[in-house]
């Protein structure tokens, strides 16, 4: 991170501000490196994949996860701590009748630690506005066509509450081990813009 060769005007302005803050003793470049390393090392959708695979294979875990996700995550070595302020996680389960999708209509709230850094489209006004009023249309744009009989529930996150979708376990995966199941899950599946 200290080796920065980006010559764009904004990169130069960011470097300039960083130098001023460093001179004032407000930031420490080593500390910034640590912040970034911790962020990239800990925030990964692989965490969410693991949670889903466990929920698919362990009914007790699934029930506890849906009832109180913050209390249950430590069972798989994860937690909702480490953010800038405490966050309550709600895991919402897809069923034969209900499909869930998450959004933050106000800004870009997202369960980073479980889903990794959020994609730009999630933070775009286009997604944030439209998934609320025309969820079916937005999901179709992502290639997810749901039967008319499926009810779509949209969950709007905020600074205190985050959501993650628990996708339905695909048919024909009965013989798979937990790690193999985790490999089937996608980031968009955890947002709800994909089936799995």
């Amino acid at each position: 991170m200290s080796d920065d060769h980006d010559d764009s005007p904004i990169a130069a302005r960011v470097r300039e501000l960083e130098a001023i803050l460093e001179e004032k003793g407000l930031i420490d470049p080593r500390e910034l490196d640590q912040v970034l390393e911790a962020f990239t090392a800990k925030a990964s959708p692989a965490n969410g994949f693991r949670v889903v695979a466990r929920a698919w294979t362990d009914d007790g875990f699934r029930a506890r996860l849906l009832a109180d996700a913050n209390d249950t995550l430590p069972e798989v070595g994860l937690s909702m701590g480490g953010g800038l302020q405490p966050q309550v996680l709600h895991v919402v389960e897809n069923t034969a009748d209900v499909h869930n999708v998450i959004v933050c209509t106000l800004c870009s709230c997202y369960p980073l630690s479980l889903l990794g850094p959020s994609p730009t489209w999630y933070k775009s006004p286009a997604y944030r506005s439209k998934v609320v009023s025309h969820p079916r249309e937005v999901l179709e744009q992502f290639g997810l066509a749901l039967p008319d009989s499926t009810r779509i529930e949209v969950w709007d996150a905020n600074a205190e509450s985050r959501y993650m979708v628990l996708p339905r376990r695909p048919a024909g995966t009965e013989g798979l081990a937990e790690a193999e199941l985790a490999a089937l899950v996608t980031r968009n599946g955890l947002i709800g813009t994909a089936a799995v």
Binding site: D4, H5, D6, L21, L26, F39
Partner: peptide
């Protein structure tokens, strides 16, 4: 870009 990561880290630090 690298500067985006710097902005994120700077904000967390501040």
């Amino acid at each position: 870009a690298d500067w985006e990561a710097h902005v994120m880290a700077m904000n967390r630090a501040l």
